[in-house]
Amino acid sequence: MKDADKAFEDFVRARSAALVRYGYVLTGNPHDAADLAQEALARLGSAWSRVRRKDDPEGYARTTMARLHISRWRRRRRERLSADLPELGYTDPGLDRAEGDGGLWRALATLPRRQRAVLVLRYYEQYTDEEIAALLRISRGTVRSQAARALDKLRASGVPAHTSATVGKGR
């Protein structure tokens, strides 16, 4: 095996769990999470030499996952016209634990993918709105509006929000 292939496989072994976790919060579904992580890693593998020289293969994989996730959302919206069932009813063993949040995890599943991705990038990855904008190739204003709409929907869904609305984080 070539050194580059071994290095790539070592990277996959070391980071697959973290990337699947990231995929899980992006998609809310363990199978989609693995699907997303594998696809992003396969693309990373194809670009391994170039990406590795830049010394940020994980950033490449995560960015690919976020963009893939949204592009799939666009594609699946079309697919739903042909009766593709939404995945809102899925449950998994991790859901019970996450349900200790008063339904927030389940409410996240009702969000459009781009809105959800913006929230994940902002509150899980802790990116600034500018970073999110660059990553998703959208404007900062779109990031803020998507986040605001998403938060409004979460509040409207009846999850126990305790304080008044906030739009953006002033970052």
């Binding site: 697959s16 769990a17 699947v20 976790r21 990231y22 995929g23 899980y24 919060v25 363990p30 999470a33 693995a34 992580a37 998994d92 063993p93 991790g94 634990r97 996450a98 200790g100 949040d101 927030l104 995890w105 996240l108 929230l119 994940v120 509150y123 899980y124």
Partner: peptide, 12 residues
Amino acid sequence: TLLDAADHAPAP
């Protein structure tokens, strides 16, 4: 919620 969900995500 996101951190907890990630912690309990199924392992590959």
